[in-house]
Design a protein around this nucleic acid. Structure first.
Lengths: 208, 208
DNA sequence: AGATGGTAGTGGACACTGTCCACATTAACG
DNA sequence: CGTTAATGTGGACAGTGTCCACTACCATCT
């Protein structure tokens, strides 16, 4: 009668489960909904078990945050990858820029909770070089920079206008994402929202 | 020995005090820091007294939210008011647009907590016509619209480009505000931040 | 093989939050 | 003056994050 059969899980299973549970909570309820106790409940473990893997709730939220940012990056990369046309082609480069913006806005719209969670903590995702196997920076900002560099090479964007232009562009897309996602424009009808996106992307293209 | 001298406050004093306390809490710690109990503590009243004036914590936060949005609107109006040049003058209209953007960004930078609180609840401030004595819409969006209309009248902005252009512009400024305030760009040095603002406002001016 | 030590999970507790209920007191008003 | 509604009090409850002491397991070294 050696008490309960408190089965020990395999290494890292609980931690991964907690992050997965946190992501799911964030998906439905945003960053506020990622509760430490609820996550442990979903994993089937006692609340304090989480403290073996995270210093506290904020560190769990940070992990969720990183995961959400990763999903955004993946969606952007997938969108860019779907654009045909070889590197340096002016039209293709422009379409790649549009694909980045569209993926960003689509993510914010389809997964408002995850999108909010991705920016819930001001940890610098972008500055920590998140590189893939080929040494390319696959972070959202890194991907945007790559396309802008391509636009310069393609002759679409004047090289003297290139430095720092990623920030106004990022701001424009991000601003629309939060205003139409969580902000005052959140319950505009689908058609209106689509029009906002079109106009905003056109505004960016015109500002190059 | 009729218990304590539980002095009754004048009509509305407790409610106003709670909102003021909530604003102060939001100023230092953002919307998350506006706790019902802490607000009542600052006012010097028992927690439950708040329920005589608000249905719950969310309704208090909504009041704080409205107050914060009001302060933003005031700053914008003050900035526009400081611009000299009569209505319809092209240069003056352009400077007024810049003043609106600058006031927005300055508010977000100087009062990050209040700025976050202003957008914490997705209640439609802008749609509820917040008009002043002269019947003008003094909400942030209303002021932006007024200046854009002036730009059309001054011949700076083509009238066929006018419809809906407030949204990309608002998005751009708002995006920079949250990215450089709470987001990943929050601990950029002052000079860099100033440069971001300049470039972003120039980006908008170029996009007209 | 057998002792040992660190790792992962348990149980119980505390302070804090928002919120509800029953009660007391005061102000307003007939 | 007596009634009534408004306003504040007191106590309680569930739920949260977090800390402490304790226990079972697994790997590793002798």
């Amino acid at each position: 009668m050696a008490a309960e059969v408190t089965r020990r899980r395999v290494r890292g299973a609980v931690r991964d489960g907690l992050v997965a549970a946190g992501v799911e909570l964030a998906r439905t309820g945003g960053p506020e909904a990622v509760l430490l106790r609820e996550a442990t409940r979903l994993v089937g473990v006692v609340p304090n078990a989480a403290y073996r893997h995270f210093a506290g709730r904020d560190e769990l939220l940070a992990a969720v945050c990183t995961a959400a940012m990763g999903e955004l990056a993946d969606r952007m990369a997938a969108g860019v990858g779907r654009v045909r046309g070889k590197y340096g082609d002016a039209a293709a480069a422009g379409r790649r820029l549009g694909a980045i913006g569209s993926a960003y806005l689509e993510f914010a719209h389809q997964e408002p909770g995850l999108f909010a969670a991705a920016f819930a903590l001001p940890q610098q995702h972008e500055y920590a070089a998140t590189v893939d196997g080929d040494g390319r920076d696959q972070s959202p900002l890194g991907q945007l920079r790559a396309v802008l560099d391509e636009l310069v090479e393609a002759g679409v964007l004047a090289s003297e206008r290139r430095p720092g232009i990623e920030y106004p562009i990022w701001s424009t897309v991000h601003g629309l994402a939060v205003l139409s996602g969580q902000g005052p424009l959140r319950d505009a009808p689908e058609a209106t929202r689509k029009q906002f996106e079109q106009r905003t992307l056109a505004f960016i293209a015109g500002g190059l």
